[in-house]
Design a protein around this nucleic acid. Structure first.
Lengths: 232, 232
DNA sequence: TGTACATCAGTGAACGCGCGTTCACTGATGTAC
DNA sequence: TGTACATCAGTGAACGCGCGTTCACTGATGTAC
């Protein structure tokens, strides 16, 4: 990289030689990256996926993208700004995943909760990097305001609304829907976090565990005096 | 520190002068710390409490204990060994806290679960440092075998046993007690983790939230066909 | 259609920092005789 | 009761590393005229 650059800087001869070789100089990286901002977000994600949040360094990022160390500073004020952007993007995708699960499910509270719970755990497993940037200790812990951002609130309110609808249809016990949703959230979050960060996945298969968990959750949320409302 | 040491190294005169001044030289730290190993564990905990796991550095530790940077290496092979010891000690205290909660509770599954759930969340809140060393992303995530160690298994089996007893007394639905205990663990863990790392604590007071959560959990664990078994 | 010029998005060398760890050393302690 | 000596638990200087960030710079791009 250093070699080719100084090579090109050496004068007109080199430049014209390149043009003689081929109309599109192949081994020459363009001076402008084109979409470095998005590339930084993407590669940053990949880096976290591989090495965890603390493996994310601007130097490594620059080197992977064949760009100088200081190039990222044209797009992000500092490392924290980059991490913040990754976190924010994560919450956006997360909220979308939850909304999709809700919309794709059969009607009824139980089906929706099952779908959303599965989506939560699956999102965590499949987007470990985003999830770690969003909820990992050390980052959000030091920036709790991140949690209050629009996108994370949206994720949570999707769940609150589903709970509220469940209450209206008589499938969910009465009570502050925020507290009920919080418990659901915590339970599913606990499953995700223990699996991802600690490798805790009881039952050899794992799917049985998820099934039992959702069952207990649903059963606990049902109104205590209306057993006839129970679904399949 | 450097001054006083070189001062003492300068010869017999200084040494005798010290004795002439006072029988117990006051500003002189003893060469041997006495109990550096325990002091390292204690101060290490304090450091994590203040700055998170990544704020734990051997240099800072040495400086806080008025000891050289390399002194810790007399007691721990490296930084990881120290963190491992902190983690291990955490699991030991954690298991004790759970066992105490179980033993201190009124008889019956519901009372025990309430006590243990509360103990779990409280341990996390009051021993943030231990908790972070035990479950924080970035550490245990990279050393999953830590989780399988004797003390962490002990914590979990305390819960499994309580569930099993609950099943025998008819307070808990049938099914693999390990899966049931895992769900309880996950739910309570989720509450703890969201509170500690993300600052998520719904309901202004928080105690109401804990109460609702335990209620849902208990209700979900009850055998579905025996409503008469419900407790207060 | 050209051209001067402002602006944007890169470069690469360097700074300063804090870290884990090593190493030859030395003072303190305990123990065999 | 003394004394030689092994062992233990410290010291402090140094090494090498990777990091975030800054800075003067330069090539590329777009835009007004």
């Amino acid at each position: 990289m250093t070699l080719s650059t100084s090579f090109c800087n050496s004068g007109l001869v080199t430049s014209s030689a390149q043009h003689a070789d081929s109309p599109e100089p192949p081994a020459r990286a363009p001076y402008h990256h084109g979409d470095l901002r998005d590339a930084l977000l993407d590669e940053g994600l990949r880096l976290i996926q591989e090495k965890g949040v603390h493996g994310l360094t601007l130097r490594e990022l620059g080197s992977r993208l064949n760009v100088s160390r200081s190039a990222p500073y044209r797009h992000f004020a500092d490392k924290d700004a980059l991490l913040s952007a990754i976190c924010q993007a994560g919450f956006e995708r997360f909220a979308n995943a939850l909304a999709e699960a809700r919309d794709g499910a059969e009607p009824g509270f139980a089906a929706r909760l099952r779908a959303m719970g599965l989506a939560y755990v699956r999102f965590a497993a499949e987007n470990r990097a985003h999830f770690e940037a969003m909820f990992g200790s050390g980052f959000v812990g030091e920036n709790p305001e991140q949690w209050k951002a629009a996108e994370s609130a949206r994720s949570f309110h999707i769940l609150v609304d589903v709970v509220r609808e469940g209450q209206q249809s008589g499938d969910v016990r009465p009570g502050d829907p925020v507290l009920l949703a919080s418990f659901i959230w915590s339970a599913v979050h606990g499953i995700s976090v223990l699996r991802i960060f600690v490798g805790f996945e009881p039952g050899s298969a794992g799917s049985e565990y998820m099934k039992v968990s959702t069952e207990i959750l649903l059963s606990g949320l049902r109104p205590t005096d209306s057993l006839q409302n129970r679904e399949n």
